[in-house]
């Protein structure tokens, strides 16, 4: 893990050396079902240490999105234990969840940009919600937008953006608040291979600065050879390429 600070990165994530080696996300015999039918995820056990970067793979419908939703506390598991930031999520009061979510950045499969807000406002949203003053974050947001190639699109509304531009705006929103955990669901689904590689580089850079990154994708070409992979088949972990501490 490289923990050197970079002055060129506008997101300015602090290196989290003191957290290295501790588990950031941990699943213990986790099962999940949406309905009374079969479990979508069954008996998942793994842990992702602080500062790790993991790819979740699997066919369409394998349960990648479901797994990510469990990590970012969107849903609670039907059985088993999930801990995030070292806290057992079943013990967390729901009032405490928003504060935990502010420590995460999330890129959803369908971007979830707000239609009536321009790109700048969409990206600045996490900071605004966290109560930061506009004067304090103005330059950060502008800088990050330039960094993801949206410098000239700050005042465009989402419906005026291409698929790839929306994707980049959604990613910028996920990283603007320097999250400790970054979760991205199919973040390269709508862009060409070049743009996809650039976006993956952004995630790698975030990770280099200490952020724990979890990316779900079925585009295996994007995954570096030495990456940690968590492959889902039939709701179970079928294969783990373990070099970042995934315990299957």
């Amino acid at each position: 893990m490289n923990t050197a600070t970079s002055t060129s990165n506008p997101s300015r994530a602090e290196p989290k050396t003191q957290m290295q080696g501790r588990d950031n996300i941990r699943f213990d015999h986790v099962g999940f079902r949406y309905t009374r039918d079969a479990e979508i995820l069954s008996d998942l056990s793994f842990s992702l240490p602080c500062g790790s970067m993991t790819y979740v793979t699997g066919a369409s419908g394998a349960g990648k999105t479901t797994l990510l939703k469990l990590i970012y506390l969107h849903m609670r598991p039907t059985r088993g234990l999930i801990s995030v930031f070292g806290r057992d999520t079943s013990q967390i009061d729901r009032k405490a969840i928003p504060a935990l979510k502010r420590r995460m950045g999330i890129v959803l499969q369908d971007f979830d940009l707000i239609d009536h807000l321009n790109v700048f406002e969409n990206v600045a949203l996490p900071l605004r919600v966290a109560g930061q003053k506009r004067a304090a974050y103005k330059d950060d947001v502008s800088g990050l937008l330039k960094w993801v190639g949206l410098g000239g699109r700050a005042h465009a509304l989402p419906q005026m953006l291409s698929g790839g531009e929306k994707q980049r705006a959604a990613i910028a929103r996920a990283v603007i608040a320097k999250p400790e955990i970054l979760i991205a669901d199919e973040p390269t689904g709508n862009v060409d291979q070049d743009m996809a590689k650039r976006l993956i580089r952004l995630f790698t850079e975030m990770n280099r600065l200490g952020t724990t990154v979890v990316i779900a994708t079925h585009n295996k070409d994007l995954i570096p050879k030495d990456a940690s992979i968590l492959a889902l088949v039939n709701g179970q972990i079928s294969n783990v390429t373990n070099d970042a501490g995934i315990k299957a």
């Binding site: 970012y72 009032k95 928003p98 504060a99 979510k101 707000i114 919600v129 966290a130």
Partner: peptide, 16 residues
């Protein structure tokens, strides 16, 4: 609905 979902996603408490 989308605004509500996104606010939830970026960690806005219900009161916000």
């Amino acid at each position: 609905r989308r605004l509500i979902d996104v606010l939830h996603q970026v960690g806005a408490p219900p009161s916000y």
